[in-house]
Each structure stands twice: as structure tokens, then as C-alpha cells.
Amino acid sequence: TETREFDNEEEARKEAERLRRKGQDVQIRKKGNRWELRRT
């Protein structure tokens, strides 16, 4: 599992969408005042 953190939700969602188009399974969750993007 690979995780990346983003400062805002929009960036996290854009990156998640990009990875999903490549066929990756991605989850986003709020972590304090940041957003965590998890690739499984």
C-alpha cells in the first residue's frame, strides 16, 4: 500500500482520478487537516 498526503481535497481527488484511469484502486480519506490518498 502506498500513501501520499495532500494539502487540499481537490488535489487529492485529481490525483485519485488520474490513478483510477490507469486502473489503480485508490481511496481518499481525511486525516486531520490534510487528505491521504491510499493506493492498494
Rank of each mutant, 00 (worst) to 15 (best):
R21Q: 12
N33V: 04
A16L: 09
D25T: 13
E9V: 09
N33A: 07
E10Q: 10
V26K: 00
L19V: 03
R4T: 12
G32R: 02
L37T: 04
E17I: 08
K14L: 11
E10D: 11
V26M: 05
E2M: 13
W35Y: 05
T3P: 11
L37E: 03
Q24S: 07
K31T: 09
E9A: 06
T3C: 14
E5T: 13
E15Q: 05
N33W: 03
K14H: 09
R21G: 11
T40G: 09
T40H: 09
A16Y: 12
G23F: 03
W35L: 02
I28F: 03
A16D: 01
E9W: 15
N8Q: 05
E5R: 06
E5Y: 15
T1L: 13
L19R: 04
R38P: 02
E5S: 12
R29D: 06
K14A: 13
E11L: 05
K14Y: 09
R20E: 04
E9Y: 15
E15F: 06
R4D: 07
R29E: 12
T40D: 09
R29A: 11
R38M: 14
F6P: 01
W35H: 02
E17P: 00
R13P: 00
K31I: 14
T1S: 12
G23T: 01
Q27G: 05
D7H: 06
K31P: 01
E36S: 02
E2G: 11
N8A: 04
R20Y: 05
G32F: 02
E9H: 07
R20A: 07
K22G: 09
R29V: 15
K22W: 10
A12L: 03
G32Y: 01
T1R: 09
N8I: 05
K14D: 09
R39Q: 15
W35F: 04
R18M: 11
A16G: 06
R21H: 08
N8K: 05
E36T: 05
N33G: 08
T40F: 10
Q24D: 09
A16I: 03
N33R: 04
D7V: 06
E36F: 08
T40I: 14
K30H: 05
E2L: 13
R34I: 14
R39N: 14
R34K: 14
K30Q: 10
G23V: 00
R18T: 09
L19I: 04
E10Y: 10
E15A: 07
R34N: 07
R13F: 12
R4I: 14
R39H: 15
A16T: 02
T40N: 10
T3K: 09
R21S: 12
E17N: 10
T3I: 13
L19H: 04
R39G: 13
E9Q: 06
D7S: 06
R34C: 14
K30L: 06
K22P: 03
R18W: 07
E17D: 11
R38G: 07
E36P: 02
K14I: 11
R18V: 10
T3L: 11
E11A: 09
R29K: 10
Q27T: 13
E36W: 04
N8L: 06
E15L: 04
A12Y: 00
L37H: 01
A12T: 02
G32A: 03
K31F: 06
R34L: 11
T3A: 10
E15R: 01
T40A: 11
D25W: 13
N33I: 04
R38L: 15
E11I: 04
E2S: 11
N33P: 10
D25K: 12
F6C: 03
R39F: 15
L19M: 10
E36R: 01
D7F: 06
L19S: 03
E10L: 08
R4Y: 14
D25I: 14
V26L: 03
L19Y: 07
R38D: 10
D25V: 13
E15D: 02
E17L: 08
E36H: 04
L37K: 02
E9F: 15
R21Y: 06
R13A: 08
E10W: 12
R34E: 03
T3M: 12
V26P: 03
D25E: 12
E15M: 07
K22T: 12
L19K: 01
E15K: 02
K30W: 04
R21V: 08
E11F: 03
K22L: 15
V26I: 08
K30D: 02
A16F: 11
F6E: 00
R34Q: 09
I28C: 04
E36D: 00
V26D: 00
W35E: 02
R21P: 01
K31V: 15
D25S: 13
G32V: 01
E11K: 04
E5I: 14
Q24R: 05
E15H: 06
K14N: 10
W35T: 01
E11G: 04
I28H: 01
K22Y: 10
E2K: 09
Q24F: 15
Q27L: 10
R4F: 14
N33E: 11
F6R: 00
L19F: 05
E15V: 07
I28G: 00
R13T: 10
R39P: 15
E5A: 07
Q24G: 05
Q27E: 14
Q27S: 12
Q24L: 14
Q27M: 10
R13L: 14
R39A: 15
E15G: 02
E5L: 14
K31A: 07
G23E: 02
D7W: 06
Q24W: 15
L37Y: 00
A16P: 00
R18H: 08
R18L: 10
E9L: 14
I28A: 03
T40S: 09
E2P: 09
E11R: 03
N8F: 07
D7K: 05
Q24E: 13
K14V: 10
R18E: 10
N33L: 06
I28L: 10
Q27H: 10
Q27N: 07
Q24A: 10
L37P: 03
R38K: 12
T1K: 09
R29I: 15
T1P: 12
T40R: 11
T3G: 09
R20I: 09
G23D: 03
T1D: 12
I28N: 00
E5G: 06
R34M: 12
K30F: 06
E10R: 07
A12Q: 00
T3D: 08
R39E: 15
R21I: 08
G32M: 01
D7G: 05
N8V: 05
E36M: 04
D25L: 13
K31M: 08
K31G: 01
E11P: 01
R34F: 09
I28V: 13
W35Q: 02
E5K: 06
I28Q: 00
I28E: 01
E9R: 07
A12W: 00
R13E: 11
K22S: 11
E5V: 14
K31L: 11
R39W: 15
R13H: 11
D25R: 11
A12F: 00
R29F: 15
V26T: 05
A12S: 01
E11Q: 07
E17R: 10
A16M: 12
R18F: 08
E17W: 08
G23W: 03
R38H: 15
D7L: 06
A12P: 01
E2R: 09
G23L: 01
D7R: 05
E10P: 05
K14T: 11
R20T: 06
G32Q: 04
R13D: 05
R21T: 09
K30A: 05
E36N: 00
R20Q: 08
V26A: 05
N8H: 05
G23K: 03
R29Y: 14
A12C: 13
E5H: 09
N33S: 08
E17A: 10
F6L: 01
E9I: 13
G32H: 03
R18N: 10
R21A: 14
N33M: 06
E2W: 15
E10V: 08
N8E: 05
K31Q: 07
R34T: 08
L19G: 02
E17G: 05
K30G: 03
L19W: 09
W35A: 02
A12G: 02
K30N: 04
E2F: 14
D7I: 07
D7E: 10
V26F: 09
T40Y: 10
K22F: 12
R29L: 14
R38Y: 15
E10A: 10
W35P: 02
K31N: 12
D25N: 13
N8C: 04
N8S: 14
T1W: 15
A12E: 00
R21N: 11
N33H: 06
D7P: 05
E5M: 14
R18C: 13
E10I: 08
